[in-house]
Design a protein around this nucleic acid. Structure first.
Lengths: 127, 127
DNA sequence: CGGGATCCTTAGGGATACTG
DNA sequence: CAGTATCCCTAAGGATCCCG
């Protein structure tokens, strides 16, 4: 049995609650995390800029999600003590590595959205 | 502006609510969907088998998530009218294509879980 | 500007019981 | 066995107000 320092199983029972993928997905699987990382992939951004670019995010969720990403070491928060204060968010090295798998998922989404929508329509019509 | 039949924007405003990635993520982004697809990637499985292999899933959520995946055309449900009835779930062709991006995410998770955990611990200690 | 703190709502999801 | 139907509760998240 292969385990990390934290004791999360990687092999052997890959779908149980301790699984690495599951732990990560619980963190980055929510709607805002992915969107924020996506936007920051285009370059650093200020709080208000993120708020404007991510349609529908509340101030609370933006703050909360950014804190989580900072805690995970995926986002860096830089405060410029000017008046008024300026805060810039950007991806860390680790955060940037996340862009690739997310990009893969995005490409899949774009490639299959049509099929999925069609399947949904057919399913709903059938029943 | 490129749009699908459904009118979801693909290019131009990639982070707004109509974005393909967002629509897909709202569907497959939850904990159970990914785990179910992962298990079915190993081969077809019966309902009770899925329930056993996916630790912690309730019967309600398993049913609900499988229905959603079937509706999306990612999972095929086959009923063998024996007594007692036997129901087998498996990935469709489309469902199988989803395995690759998920695998990429899983590999990222395994590769970075240690760093993320360490970062979290450091963050919490600093506070 | 970039949040923190509170209140309040609702929907996601567990537990349980029943069915073809 | 493979679900459906119901009740119920918690916690995610929106709205609002305030502050350095």
């Amino acid at each position: 049995m292969v385990t990390t320092q934290a004791g999360a199983k990687l092999i052997g029972d890959p779908y149980d609650a301790g699984c690495a993928t599951r732990r990560i997905l619980d963190r980055i699987g929510d709607r805002w995390t992915v969107l924020i990382v996506g936007v920051l992939g285009d370059g650093d951004a200020r709080f208000s800029e993120l708020r404007r670019r991510i349609d529908g995010v509340s101030q609370k969720m933006l703050t909360q999600t950014l804190r989580g990403l900072e805690r995970d070491g995926l986002v860096r928060r830089t405060v410029y003590p000017e008046v008024p204060v300026r805060v810039v968010y950007g991806l860390t090295e680790a955060g940037r590595t996340l862009l690739e798998p997310l990009r893969a998922l995005q490409e899949w989404s774009i490639a299959h959205l049509g099929d999925v929508s069609a399947s949904q329509a057919a399913y709903d019509r059938a029943d």
